[in-house]
């Protein structure tokens, strides 16, 4: 190795993230090159310094505060579904559309509450406050973080990832990652699995359409698939036919 070792190589070397031949090249080069040897020592010192940063235990009261907050949480999945169903209404910018979105929200929240009561679920302590959406309101139009996956930019929202540029669009199709269509999509964009792993849906452009893909929780049974019948062979007039 005649060229100097890059910073990235030095860093990965110290993390033992390189292959054997690259490790040997770097060690040989740093032994002969004073400049790279010094840079390696510097990098090592930085890592050692980070190792001296003391860890701090959370305040003991924090656990109790979290317990108290969790105790008054509404049943999360239902609330999230209701939020998902109205979220896209918030994106229109024109006042007329905004009014329509607000009316739609009021209607959906009403249906959501009635639906809950109809299911016989215990009402939340203060249903109005739970749904008043201080949190939802704060999220409107505020695009949070991004992730580079499958050579596209995805934007994190509280209820999933949306490909940049598709905000406010209603997906024309929704698919489960385990379905044939979902598997085909993931074969083409395997990196999307990274985004799907935490259970949130991903909205993206696929085959010129806006689609949504999500992982269904493993314990969610939506139907029983018929088990494949064992193929038995029988002879008919001397030829073998699968039954």
């Amino acid at each position: 190795m005649n060229r100097h070792v890059s910073t990235e190589q030095l860093s990965a070397y110290l993390d033992a993230e390189l292959g054997y031949s690259e490790i040997r090249q770097i060690e040989n080069h740093c032994a002969a090159c004073k400049e790279c040897g010094a840079r390696l020592d510097d990098m090592q010192r930085v890592i050692s310094g980070l190792g001296r940063v003391e860890r701090v235990a959370p305040p003991p009261a924090l656990r109790q505060q979290i317990r108290q907050q969790v105790a008054v949480q509404p049943p999360a999945p239902s609330l999230e579904r209701a939020y998902n169903s109205v979220r896209l209404l918030f994106f229109p910018i024109r006042p007329a559309l905004r009014t329509a979105a607000a009316m739609g929200l009021a209607l959906t929240v009403g249906i959501f509450i009635v639906h809950h009561e109809a299911e016989g679920l215990p009402p939340t302590p203060r249903p109005g406050e739970e749904v008043v959406t201080v949190e939802l309101g704060a999220q409107i139009g505020q695009l949070l973080t991004t992730s580079e996956v499958a050579d596209r930019q995805f934007i994190w929202t509280d209820d999933g990832w949306i490909q940049k540029g598709l905000e406010g669009q209603t997906p024309v199709a929704r698919m489960d990652a385990g379905s044939p269509q979902g598997r085909a999509l993931l074969t083409r964009y395997s990196d999307l699995k990274l985004l799907l792993e935490d259970g949130y849906p991903v909205v993206l452009r696929y085959d010129l359409e806006t689609v949504e893909i999500r992982n269904l929780p493993p314990n969610r049974i939506i139907g029983f698939e018929p088990q494949p019948v064992p193929r038995r062979a029988r002879h008919i007039h001397g030829s073998i036919v699968a039954a």
Binding site: Q65, Q69, Q73, A76, K193, L196, G199, P217, P218
Partner: peptide
């Protein structure tokens, strides 16, 4: 930390194990 754990609580059921 408090907000993060509330979020975790809300979504823990959808953790897919992948």
């Amino acid at each position: 930390t408090q907000e993060i754990f509330l979020r975790i609580y809300r979504h823990l059921g959808s953790f897919g194990g992948r």
